[in-house]
Amino acid sequence: MSKEILQQSALELNMDPYKLRKYLNEGERNLFDDILSAFNEKRHKSDRKINQTLIDLISSFASDGYCIIVGRAGHIITRGIKESLLIRMTADHDWRVKQIMENNNLNIRQAIDFIEKTEQERLNFCKRFAAGNDTTDGFDLTINLSRITMNDTIKIIHSAAQIKGLLDYHRSKVEVF
């Protein structure tokens, strides 16, 4: 799940999903911004309220288990869960530019701009939950996709999940006494 988290958060906060997405991708907001938007918007939600809703939602999905969270700072929020596998996918810049050009039908300049803009938005999003810590830290596994095929990537993820015991299909949840 990735976009589903945003949709569910928007539903809980009674906000427009597009507006919430835009809001989350913005840089840091200060108290003055909050006060201004409180006067401006009819259904204003404070920064703290939005962050807490997202944390609660992701934690609840993660606690229920048997799910894969792509992005949305899932690796920061679920860091404390023992039965979790935190994966980071990276690739060389040129490789990523090529992928974006092919998939989104963009020229090289547009692709580079898109990458920079989206990276900044994701960084802003993650910073909300990182509490000053490095947002690219603490992974179980980091895979460089420009040096490995997609099939091999899938095999690596599968093996890692198996090694950590996350793919025991028929087991029941372990109770703690």
């Binding site: 992005g71 899932g74 979790s84 994966i87 990276t90 949840k173 109770e175």
Partner: peptide, 23 residues
């Protein structure tokens, strides 16, 4: 409340990696 949370897999990715497709 006594149940252990998870299992969960979290994937963080750089832009252009196509993590959703791989998943």
């Amino acid at each position: 409340d006594n149940t252990q949370p998870g299992p969960v897999i979290c994937i963080s990715r750089e832009v252009g990696c196509g993590a959703v497709n791989i998943t």
